[in-house]
């Protein structure tokens, strides 16, 4: 019995190969299986635009897209994201320049310290795409998972509204 436990523990501690598709690029990593997607992005791929605010799925600063849907990268293991398309703030802008939501956040001063901004933008882009940003009330609700301690909420709502209506 003890031997089995030891083996299980050793197996858990052994690094595993993980292939991640991030912003359209394939990355081959060898990670402890308990490494979160957030830590894989920040510490192993150097993609530090995704932030660690609370590390427990409550502040929204670590929001990324997994297969086009908003997800908290601190609440998933990197291995769980294998074979799925991950987009971070660094991958949002295209060849033509900033994503319209990024443009809208710029135009509306929708940040102060900037630490929550990448998460806000990642949540806003999916909310708009999924048709959940049709009114201010809807925006206020759908964006409430992304905390902004500076209280830039009026500008965040204005930016999301503008982006949803297809203007800066």
């Amino acid at each position: 019995m003890e031997t089995t436990l030891e083996l299980t523990k050793a197996a858990a501690d052994a690094p595993v190969p993980v292939v991640l598709d991030v912003n359209g690029r394939i990355h081959r990593l060898t990670l402890d299986s308990r490494v979160t997607l957030l830590d894989a992005l920040r510490d192993h791929l150097g993609l530090t635009g995704t932030k660690k605010g609370c590390d427990r799925g409550e502040c929204g600063a670590c929001t990324v897209h997994i297969d086009g849907r908003a997800a908290l990268s601190c609440l998933q293991f990197a291995v769980m994201a294998e074979g799925r398309a991950i987009t971070t703030i660094e991958g949002l802008a295209g060849d033509a320049g900033l994503h319209p939501v990024q443009e809208a956040f710029l135009a509306h001063d929708a940040f102060q310290c900037g630490f929550c901004t990448s998460g806000q933008i990642m949540s806003a882009t999916t909310a708009i795409r999924e048709g959940r940003a049709g009114s201010d009330a809807e925006i206020r609700e759908v964006m409430s998972g992304n905390l902004c301690r500076c209280g830039a909420y009026p500008q965040i709502v204005a930016a999301v509204r503008a982006a949803a209506q297809g203007r800066d």
Partner: peptide, 21 residues
Amino acid sequence: LPHDSAAKHVAGTAVYVDDIP
């Protein structure tokens, strides 16, 4: 005028202490 780091904030390229290589 916008915040001095505005463009970096929306692009995720503003560096905080834990982001320094």
